[in-house]
């Protein structure tokens, strides 16, 4: 556990050493606020449904940007060789990196607190869906992060890690989307619907926190972190 904390601290700090973190958070907030408030006054309803329905799409690009560096950089500058010869288990390093990315993304998500504050000031929103929406966003973000980290562990090129991260999360997101489920064979529809990254988010953001949805996201996280440990274990590079 000490090792997990050591890696967590190092990784989390490294976000803020360079300007990347500040640029990321600023752009994230500006983009989501702009897209949300564009429609907010037209619809003229005091809720955040518009905001949360943006997130699965926004995360497609923002989350791989957080994770692309994690492993690709370690491999590129060969610090991975150092790291894996220290007395730490692969799982500890993977968890440390995941937690750092998770806390960073959560920080960015929670900084959009100005939106609910604005809405409360202007109307009388139902707080259930808003709290649920934030919880769902954090869970969904965690799933995206785990996928992005795994992709990053398979390349030493950050750009490739980013693009493949977008592609991987996009596929897993689209699988459950009506676009796909409408044309997919009948028997596959419930499976696709269950696997799809976005579907569980929709039910949480209605304010219904169902344990099945929480379990879904946690198992996606667990599965991809497991793959991440595996790809470290294989040491195929070089």
């Amino acid at each position: 556990m000490n090792n997990v904390m050591a890696f967590f601290k190092k990784e989390f700090k490294s976000f803020f050493i360079s300007p990347i973190a500040y640029v990321f958070i600023t752009v994230y907030l500006v983009v989501t606020n702009f897209l949300f408030f564009q429609g907010f006054f037209i619809i003229n309803q005091a809720d955040m449904r518009g905001y949360f329905s943006l997130l699965p799409w926004v995360f497609l690009f923002f989350v791989p940007a957080i994770t692309m560096r994690s492993w690709a950089e370690e491999k590129k500058v060969h610090t991975l060789e150092l790291l894996l010869t220290w007395p730490v288990s692969d799982i500890e390093v993977v968890l440390g990196k995941f937690l750092a990315c998770f806390c960073f993304l959560t920080t960015a998500i929670l900084l959009s607190i100005t939106i609910p504050i604005t809405i409360v000031a202007m109307g009388n929103p139902d707080m259930g869906p808003i709290v649920g929406g934030y919880l769902g966003a954090i869970l969904m973000g965690a799933a995206y992060l785990a996928i992005g980290l795994w992709v990053s562990s398979n390349t030493e090129n950050q750009i490739i890690a980013f693009i493949l991260g977008v592609v991987a999360t996009f596929i897993l997101f689209m699988i459950g989307n009506p676009f796909v489920t409408m044309v997919a064979p009948k028997w596959m529809v419930p499976i696709f619907g269950y696997i799809g990254l976005g579907n569980h988010f929709e039910s949480i953001q209605r304010g219904v926190v169902d344990s099945r949805d929480v379990i879904y996201y946690l198992s996606i996280v667990g599965f991809f972190l497991f793959l991440n440990v595996q790809s470290l274990g294989s040491r195929k590079w070089e």
Partner: peptide, 17 residues
Amino acid sequence: RRKIGYLPENNPIYNDM
């Protein structure tokens, strides 16, 4: 790994720290 101290070739190191 606890017994070993290792300086790999080309000294990989975290440059941002």
